[in-house]
Design a binder for these strands. Structure first.
Length: 263
DNA sequence: ACCTAAACCTGGGCGC
DNA sequence: TGCGCCCAGGTTTAGG
């Protein structure tokens, strides 16, 4: 489900709700989301601790605790963090203000870790930060003789892009998903860099894309799915040239593009 | 140092 | 209605 705009939308929803709250209790209905820790140990370790802040790095949400520990959540494909329960709730956090926070996950690809201290990740730059410069992006592309689309999904290259926004950015930049990264000229690279940032910011403004499972913490869908130009549009007319949108598989991921507009 | 494919899961949608 | 496919906003791990 969630790429950078969706995870950031959730972070903005839950941050004011969680900040300064103590964790009173944790109830686990399915233990499979926990990584490298049992649900029992997790519960014991976090109950009584206080949430100081909620951060995001790439697609990870990081709950910063007073003890110095950190709860890290990755939503996987169908993970949602909710103020009200749905039918796929796996974990419930009981908070000191008497309210609850629900972790829901139909497919169970979501992951939850508990770290003794704030984690460092070996990931690429945040695409909406200054660190993600046009120059660095151009240089990075030159270093890879591999198809651009799977490269954009590599979190060690750029942190937070996923299947939808990679497809959308390539369409906007007029680049074929199979084009080898090192064959993209500087002008196109600069265009792609700009379109990555633009599409992420626009999607954030519309509170994410809800093609299937994604909802924000209040259970509401995003609105960016209405503005997608290629993703999930197989066989439909390209908005620019009317040519039917194609779907191919690249790196095991469905990949949508316009065969005429993207070279 | 690269690819590629399988694995982890549940459920929606479609054709027959 | 039901069955059997294909598909799904992700990441890790194993194999060539």
């Amino acid at each position: 489900m969630p790429e950078l705009p969706e995870v950031e939308t959730v972070r903005r929803d839950i941050r004011p709700y969680l900040k300064g709250e103590s964790i009173k209790e944790v109830k686990v209905f399915d233990r499979r989301n926990f990584q490298k820790i049992t649900s029992l140990k997790f519960r014991k370790a976090v109950v009584g601790d206080k949430i100081l802040d909620v951060d995001r790095r790439a697609k990870y949400l990081i709950f910063k605790l007073k003890s110095g520990k950190a709860i890290v959540i990755h939503l996987g494909m169908t993970g949602n963090i909710l103020f009200d329960p749905d039918r796929y709730v796996k974990i419930v956090f009981f908070l000191s203000h008497g309210k609850k926070l629900y972790f829901s996950d139909m497919r169970l690809f979501g992951k939850i870790w508990l770290y003794a201290e704030y984690p460092e990740y070996d990931l690429g730059p945040e695409p909406l930060s200054l660190e993600f410069s046009t120059e660095k992006f151009k240089q990075m592309l030159k270093q890879h003789r591999t198809a651009i689309k799977p490269l954009l999904l590599n979190q060690k290259v750029i942190a937070g892009l996923g299947n939808i926004y990679a497809a959308e950015a390539l369409f906007r930049a007029g680049i074929h998903p199979k084009r080898l990264a090192n064959t993209i000229d500087d002008k196109r690279a600069a265009k792609l860099h700009k379109e990555i940032q633009k599409v992420l910011l626009e999607a954030l403004g519309f509170r994410g894309t809800s093609v299937r499972a994604f909802v924000n913490a209040s259970g509401k869908k995003g609105e960016f799915q209405l503005r997608l130009k290629v993703y999930d549009r197989k066989g439909k007319a390209c908005y620019k040239c009317k040519t039917p949108i194609k779907r191919i598989v690249l790196g095991q991921r469905g990949t949508y593009y316009c065969p005429r507009c993207q070279k």
